[in-house]
Amino acid sequence: MNGGERVPPGDVAPRFPGFDVLDQADHWDDATRSVVLSRVHALPPIRFFTPEEEAAATCLLDRLMGQDDDLDPHRIQLVRMVDGRLAERETDGWHYDSMPQDDQAWRDSLAGLDADARDRYGRSFAECGLEQQRELLSAIHGSDQERWHGMPPKQVWSLWTRYAATAFYSHPEAWNEIGFSGPAYPRGYKNRGVDKREPYEVPDARPSDDPVRGRRG
């Protein structure tokens, strides 16, 4: 793997060229290395989702995280990470009283997505094109309705995005994309402070590429 190839969607070049956090894995403690590498090499097979749910969840998670190229060799296997959490009931430790427990809420909401897709486009969510999928999701994200298939749409969105973001940014490929150096035990960080870097950290190639300013400008 070459982390330096990691390019955010819509960008033409990586922000942290040549940076690969796994180059430092030999300096990590055993427990941490084992947990991080298991996401890269040893994700368990799908245990919780049915094939239909797996298909819908794959597209949902990839759209939420902007992984829009199915053939991208760096694509992170989000659906398997989310499936693993649900199979092992690894929840966030709470659920809204207006929602079922997380595992059931995932099943219900994926069924809701497929129902919306059939209603509007006559096919399942996974069979829709990227733009169609995005439109279906935008409608839920922007919804001011009390209920969407029996659940508050804001809370459905919260459920999806929490699981998606946790899966995506737990992966070293995502750390490469954002220049995050990750674990530093037992070594620690030696160069702390504004514009200071460890010898293995890579400066941002486009430091003034401010997404907030960019969007407003």
Partner: peptide, 24 residues
Amino acid sequence: WAEHIMAQGHWGADFRNYMSDYVH
């Protein structure tokens, strides 16, 4: 941090682009 950014309403490519700015 990603949960913060998503709470602002970002998702998809826009969200990833926002997140790539983390070190700043």
